[in-house]
Design a binder for these strands. Structure first.
Lengths: 249, 249
DNA sequence: CGACCGATTGACTATTTTCAAGTGGTGTGG
DNA sequence: CCACACCACTTGAAAATAGTCAATCGGTCG
């Protein structure tokens, strides 16, 4: 079960510089955050932080550690992953528009989040231009990213979706923890999603995902080893995936 | 070509009560809006207000009259409609996150928009809690709507997408101008998109759209007459479209 | 009238899903 | 330590779904 660990301490927060408080000068932080009611909460893999249908949105959250998937689902059980959150991401702010949660947030791994009541966030936005700007920017970036996914889902074929997904993963400068260079100087990227989750993100079945990955391994475009992948031939991947010049952008 | 008509006058604005200024008390409006630089601009059908690749976002817009489609496209020409805007909608605010436009806005019909420099919008948000709240709410609603579309595009089959699209159209309480009751007391809904645009919204080809519409006409589920449709049998539509209980939500 | 454009329809093809069987790794209990 | 179950993933064959190509229809406009 989820577990409340302690009150959050911004100054020592591991994701302070990726959070909505990153732009607040250190000397003002203590003052700005005073009498707000943050809690650090941990969740085990598979547990949900909130649920699309059941919960009204009274708190926003900042992800401190781990990965979270945001999903929506149909009554018959089909699931769409809307986005995957990484350290520093803000989520669960629907209440700012007086709406209940529009989606479900589930821990993909062990997670640590910082809960902030929306009333406090509203106050903070008034008190600090930095928080206001940062919140708005994140919202707009969420929107842009979701629009980009619309194009992926609506306009691309399976192989194109998958190729773009892999190429984006490998180019992501967002989360340095996802990257590592092994001793032979090759760039591996951790693949935090199962086949079925990749399918659920891209609107494909697990079998379709598996088939293209297998095919690309046979062709030598990619290598995989325990939840990490390596792109050996990005151009090959692009060409095989995109009959036309359709994979850019 | 587009044509600058005049400076906007909020008090006499036809969409004042649907705009981000709707919550400002009338007596304060004059004062609040003083020394801001709005322009009312008209666009002919097919003209774009701004373009995904070319334009940096320096102004936001409010749609006063007509319909606008927001689209994204792939280099090879495939197009995805992201959303369709109606009177009162705010768009083009990417610049608030220091980003250039992420999509293209094109007039679906003759349009009239009110342009507001983002610097002014930023000021207005500071000056007025109502504008701040309204802007934030709209952003969040855009995000929610786009997430809903992700589920449509990623998880549903063609017939389900189309049925949901028609049912949503007919239930939309957003834009009363889209509705009218004809003299035989039947509810017609205007269908502002061509077959090809419906396809582009739902990730389908024009032929697929046409086939399902024809089929449903033959079955007596819907009727169509010059850009308006009427849903005769919503249950039939739901059942035929959704093998399982998948069309709710 | 004739050209044009959006929409429809049919026949065919390509793509993706579905169903089913099998593989391989991991962990548990006998 | 092995046997077994379990799970994620792979693979194949068949079926369903949607796309492509091409012909045609019907309305509108010059």
């Amino acid at each position: 079960m989820s577990h409340i660990k302690c009150k959050g301490h911004c100054l020592s927060c591991p994701v302070r510089h990726q959070s909505i408080f990153s732009e607040i000068p250190e000397e003002e932080l203590e003052e700005t955050i005073r009498d707000f009611h943050t809690s650090v909460i941990t969740y085990g893999e598979g547990e949900s932080i909130f649920h699309q249908h059941d919960d009204s949105s009274e708190s926003a959250y900042t992800l401190r550690k781990g990965l979270i998937k945001i999903t929506k689902s149909l009554p018959d059980g089909r699931v769409q992953i809307v986005r995957v959150l990484m350290a520093g991401d803000l989520f669960g702010f629907d209440g700012l528009a007086n709406e209940s949660y529009n989606h479900t947030a589930t821990a993909l791994t062990e997670c640590e989040v910082c809960r902030l009541p929306l009333a406090d966030l509203a106050q903070l936005r008034k008190r600090s231009n930095e928080v206001d700007h940062s919140t708005l920017s994140r919202l707009i970036k969420n929107l842009r990213q979701t629009e980009d996914m619309l194009l992926e889902l609506g306009a691309k074929k399976a192989s194109e979706k998958l190729a773009t997904f892999l190429l984006n993963l490998s180019q992501s400068d967002r989360n340095p923890t996802l990257h590592h260079i092994d001793n032979s100087n090759e760039e591996w990227v951790s693949l935090p999603l199962s086949r079925s989750e990749i399918g659920s993100l891209l609107g494909l079945t697990i079998e379709t995902v598996s088939r293209f990955f297998s095919q690309w391994k046979r062709k030598g475009f990619i290598k995989e080893s325990k939840r990490s992948i390596q792109i050996l031939d990005a151009d090959g991947l692009k060409k095989s995936a995109c009959s036309l010049g359709s994979c850019e952008n």
